[in-house]
Structures are given as structure tokens and as C-alpha cells.
Design a protein around this nucleic acid. Structure first.
Lengths: 110, 110
DNA sequence: CGGGATCCGAGAAGATACTG
DNA sequence: CAGTATCTTCTCGGATCCCG
């Protein structure tokens, strides 16, 4: 606010990018957009993410208010992740990005 | 294509994120959406980007077909950056992200 | 089962100096 | 003016081991 270059960091675009800029964030959100998922389900869906990374990204998404984490006190433990209202509101943007990518990025390019 | 986990890397969302995932990419695109800009203009607009980083990000955006680079053979040299048709097509998504951020991310949070 | 804690390498990002 | 070339720093993401 004091420095006049802060219009960059205060730009909504910058904030959004910081939140969903993680390597796996948007695909996780995309996956959760079809319904709540258990930790193991997500992990099996994205085998290339390590548990540690998956936990980290989910926690960050939780802190940013995109994802809700529900712990069921059972044996064995069970944890479900779902989108919050904020997260749901972001899905249309993901969808438009998805559609845009399909149209403008040739599958076999690069 | 061979491994069944490639649906992740082949996901349009993943591709889009790779392209605009750079720290400054989307704000640069956002800035260019108002019209062609010279290198020096961009640099002065974002003083926190080093020349090297700015050059790199612009070249990557150029390689990905989002930005057009026009070199004028003058003394002193002059280089103008502008959005390609693809880049222009992406602007509405930036705009929706911008609007979404304004609504859902409180200015004073965190 | 769903993590936490720690260590580590690669690549992103920053600082600085030089050039056509 | 608009870069290039290094060098350094730092953050992200990955691997591994341990825990309730």
C-alpha cells in the first residue's frame, strides 16, 4: 500500500495465481469438482504426486478457503476433501480454462 | 499416451498452467492486453522484475504463441511486444480471474 | 489410512556486469 | 534501449522414514 509498485501484488490476478499456482492445485480442484474425495482416492488418481506434496497442496488449498477437510474419527482413519463454496465458485473459471486449452492448444504440439 | 497417468499431463488445464504459471506471466499478459508495449515500458511498469527475468518470461510467452515480438531496426533499438490472436483469446479468462479475485479475495485478508 | 518430519536436488528467480 | 552472460539464492517439489 505504501510503495506504488504494490499494485502488482495487490492485483487480484496475482493473488489468484498465488493460490492456484502450485503444480498440482488446479488439477486437484478439477478432480474435486466432481464430488468429495478421500485422500487415498486422490493419491491413486494422481500417482505422480507424493503423499507429502499432496498433503501440502491440500492444506494450502484449505488455508486459502478453496477446500474443506473433513476428518472422520474412525478406525482406520478417513479424511474427505471437498470444495468449499469459494472453491465451487472457481470451477467455472477452471472449466473455461479447460475449454480454452482444448481449443487453442493442439494435442500434439511442441 | 502410453502410460495411463498421462491424462494428467495431457490435461488442457495442466498445459495452460504450464504456460501462464510463471510468476509474472499473467500480469504481463494483462498489461499487454491494453495494447502493444515496449520492453522499457514493461520494465518500468514492473520494477520488481529484473531485465533477465522479464526477457525470459516474454520469450517463453512468445514461444507459446501468446505474445508477438516486433523488432524495429533503429538506433536506439526498439522492441515492441503485443498479444497474438491466441493471447487476445486468452484475455477473457484473465478478466474472469481478475473479477473473481476481486469478489472472492478480500483486499485485507491474510 | 492418512498423515508428519526431515533431508535433498532441480529449477525458478534475483543480482550484477557487460554488449551491440 | 534492449538485451546477454554469469553467479548466487531460494523455493518448490520429490524421496524416505516414522507415527497415531
Amino acid at each position: 500500500m505504501s510503495k506504488n509498485t504494490d499494485f502488482v501484488t495487490s492485483c487480484p490476478l496475482t493473488k489468484v495465481q498465488k493460490i492456484v499456482g502450485g503444480k498440482w492445485k488446479i488439477v486437484i480442484l478439477w478432480y474435486l469438482s466432481v464430488g468429495p474425495k478421500r485422500f487415498g482416492q486422490i493419491k491413486r488418481t494422481f500417482p505422480d504426486i507424493t503423499q507429502a506434496m499432496l498433503t501440502k497442496q491440500l492444506r494450502e488449498l484449505e488455508e486459502d478457503g478453496f477446500v474443506h477437510r473433513e476428518v472422520f474419527k474412525e478406525i482406520p482413519p478417513r479424511v474427505e476433501y471437498s470444495l468449499t463454496a469459494t472453491g465451487e465458485n472457481f470451477v467455472p473459471i477452471l472449466r473455461s480454462m479447460y475449454d480454452w486449452g482444448e481449443v487453442h492448444l493442439a494435442p500434439a504440439e511442441q
